[in-house]
């Protein structure tokens, strides 16, 4: 397949093979070993936008930090464009753009520009090239107006943009984005998602590893997704493939004006679950069942006398449904302390 952005596929952008990372905590009798990564393996070809989806404590950040050479795994190998991250770490660091989760990864007492200047120098940029690159990124991310203000005055969304600019300074080949929209208000979240997908992946052709515990984010952005749970990669598929994993289930979504009485629906043959969400005068019903077609007319008959119907849709199961189906854990769960 000839693809204009990657004429030469070469080695995979990232290859993790059986990565194990243990954390030892406490001393003596209270000593506890946490298996943060328990043999995680994945391969990301160049140019792919790859999502790592899993609940709190699944090991996402740990894997990112191992790849970024900030942690040394207990065993397993990690190769970046064919180079081992442990033995060839300077080379690998030069090709990685890292966006770590957590807010305080920049100097809050300095301006965006001063932060970027400092990190640019660490990545080997200097002189006019450096200034041009910084101006370009500030412009691209809509930060030019505020570039000379201290970060402590920024909102967390704007700080995240600066972090993203920092990750992009040296025009890296692969981006490691750890929960890039965590804690941002929806407007910034949307901007960052769009930026990642359209600008970075589509336009600039960058390979991206993105971690998240928001299934919508993974679904919307990623070419392929790996489910991670308790330090293991459970499965890797495209979002569409994942949704076909749950057999014999469909979701009928009905939107209507007002609030209908749903007790009748629950007694219809085949309906397993009814979720109702009432917002701004509109109710959205999600009915889970093996085959939507069979009950469609009965549902309409039941609701039509009560409310005005706005739309009816047969929906695929969400990634969250699949995640629960495959792991028995919900994405909203916190698995941090259960791991041994």
């Amino acid at each position: 397949m000839a693809d204009s952005t990657h004429p030469n596929p070469g080695p995979p952008a990232l290859l993790c093979d059986n990565v194990v990372k243990l954390f030892r905590r406490g001393r003596g009798l209270k000593k506890k070993v946490v298996r943060a990564l328990d043999g995680a393996s994945l391969t990301i070809p160049q140019g792919e936008l790859f999502g790592l989806l899993g609940p709190n404590g699944a090991g996402k950040t740990t894997l990112v930090r191992c790849i970024a050479t900030l942690l040394i795994p207990d065993s397993g190998t990690i190769r970046l464009f064919g180079h081992d991250v442990f033995t060839d770490s300077l080379f690998c660091r030069q090709r990685i753009g890292l966006l770590t989760s957590g807010e305080r990864t920049l100097y809050w007492k300095l301006s965006a520009r001063d932060n970027l200047r400092f990190f640019a120098a660490l990545y080997g940029l200097h002189g006019r090239d450096r200034d041009r690159r910084i101006d370009y990124l500030l412009e691209l991310l809509g930060l030019r107006e505020v570039a000379n203000e201290r970060l402590e005055r920024y909102s967390s969304g704007m700080k995240q943009k600066v972090s993203l600019a920092r990750a992009l300074l040296h025009d890296p080949d692969i981006l490691l984005l750890d929960e890039p929209t965590l804690g941002l208000d929806p407007q910034f979240g949307r901007f960052i998602r769009q930026f990642i997908k359209e600008e970075l992946n589509r336009k600039q052709g960058k390979t991206i590893l993105l971690t998240t515990h928001y299934m919508d984010e993974a679904d919307e952005l990623c070419d392929r997704i790996a489910f991670i749970n308790r330090g293991k990669i459970v499965a890797t598929r495209t979002p569409a493939e994942f949704k076909r994993e749950i057999p014999h289930k469909e979701i009928l979504e009905v939107r209507c004006l007002g609030q209908p009485d749903t007790t009748g629906l629950k007694h219809l043959d085949g309906i397993e679950q009814v979720q109702a969400d009432f917002r701004d005068g509109i109710t959205t019903l999600r009915l889970v069942m093996p085959k939507a077609e069979k009950v469609l007319s009965e549902v309409i008959e039941l609701l039509r006398p009560q409310v005005r119907l706005l739309g009816i849709d047969v929906k695929e199961p969400t990634l969250e449904d699949v995640f629960i189906y495959m792991t028995g854990t919900s994405l909203g769960a916190d698995t941090k302390e259960e791991i041994q």
Binding site: L90, R93, G102, E103, R104, T105, L106, Y107, F119, L122
Partner: peptide, 18 residues
């Protein structure tokens, strides 16, 4: 304390330079 040590150590310069 600032939380910046990891960002700095992720950069492609040896520690002694820093």
């Amino acid at each position: 304390f600032y939380g910046t040590l990891e960002s700095v150590f992720a950069a492609p310069v040896p520690r002694w330079v820093f």
